[in-house]
Write a protein that binds this DNA or RNA. Structure first.
Lengths: 141, 141
DNA sequence: CTTGTTGTAATCTTTTCGATTACATCCATA
DNA sequence: TATGGATGTAATCGAAAAGATTACAACAAG
C-alpha cells in the first residue's frame, strides 16, 4: 500500500499558494485546477494545513495564504498535518496466537525495528523545507 | 495508509519455521494457527518467500524449511519478497495540470526527496537480520 | 442584500486486502 | 500403486479506505 496522495497534493498546493497568492486569489477552485482534483478535496487539505498553523484560510472571503515562511515549513510538517500515515507505517497482523511463543512475542521483537525504519524515513522528510523545493522549482523555470 | 501486514506475517512465519521445523511439520495449517490467519494466506506468502529463495516448500510432502541461514536474511529481503510496497512508497497525485508551472514540475522537484525518504526507511530494514530477531526472541523466553 | 467562498456532511465508486471456498496437483508411505 | 494429507492457485466475497462529487449552511466583502 502507498502513502496517501493527500501529502503530495498538500505540498503542491502550498507551492502554488506561494507562487500565485500575490497576483491571484488562490481559492480552492483555482488550486484544484492546478492539482487537477476536486475543490472539496483541496478544502479538506487546506483545513488540515490551517489546523497545523501552516496556512491561513477564511470562510467567505476566499483565498488561502501562507501562515509562515516557506523556510519554516518542512516536508515532515506537511506530512503530519494531513495525516499521511495514521500512527504506524507498518501494519501488524492483529491477534497472533498468544499460546505460541512466536505469536506471543513477535510484536515486542519486531515493532522497535519497524519504528526505527519509520523514524528514518520521517527524519529525511524533516531535512527538506518548502523553501528548498521552491528554489528547485525556480531553477526548472 | 499502512504497509500490508503480509510483511509482519512473513517475518512471523519465518521465525516460527526456524523455531519449530525441527520438531514438527510446519505446514501452512500449523503456521496459520500461530499467525491466526487463513492457511491460504500463509501459502501465498510462502510462495513469495520461495520465489525469493528464502524458504523451501514442496507441494505434497508438506512443511516449509529455511533455504538459508537466518543470518543471511534481512528484514529488507522479506519486505521485498512479499511486495510490501509496490514500487514507490509515496503515492503521487496523477495528472497535475501541465499548463501550470507548479503542476508541470511538482513531480520532478518532489520525487527525489520522497525517494530519499523511502530509501532511508529501507536501509534501516537492511540492518536487521532474522538472526537478530531470533536472539531477541530467545531473550524473552 | 447579493455574490462568491469556505466548511462539512453524506454518497458513491474504485481499489486493495485478507478470508474463504474449491479443486487440481503432488508426494511420502502404507 | 493407491491413498490421505499437503501445496498451488484461481475465483469470490466482504470490509476498509480514498478520492470524487453533490448539497447546502455559514460567512465575508462590496
Amino acid at each position: 500500500m502507498q502513502i496517501t496522495s493527500r501529502f503530495t497534493v498538500a505540498v503542491h498546493t502550498l507551492l502554488a499558494i506561494h507562487m500565485f497568492s500575490r497576483t491571484q486569489k488562490t481559492t480552492s477552485d483555482f488550486l484544484a485546477a492546478s492539482v487537477n482534483a476536486n475543490p472539496v478535496v483541496i478544502r479538506r487539505i487546506l483545513s488540515s494545513l490551517k489546523a497545523a498553523g501552516i496556512v491561513d484560510v477564511r470562510a467567505g472571503s476566499g483565498g488561502a495564504s501562507l501562515a509562515r515562511p516557506l523556510s519554516d515549513i518542512t516536508l515532515y510538517d506537511v506530512y503530519r498535518a494531513v495525516d499521511s500515515v495514521e500512527g504506524d507505517l507498518f501494519h501488524f497482523h492483529e491477534r497472533p496466537n498468544p499460546d505460541c511463543p512466536v505469536g506471543h512475542n513477535i510484536r515486542a521483537v519486531l515493532a522497535p525495528h519497524l519504528d526505527a525504519a519509520q523514524r528514518a524515513m520521517e527524519e529525511q522528510l524533516r531535512q527538506v523545507t518548502l523553501s528548498d523545493l521552491a528554489h528547485e522549482l525556480d531553477a526548472l523555470l
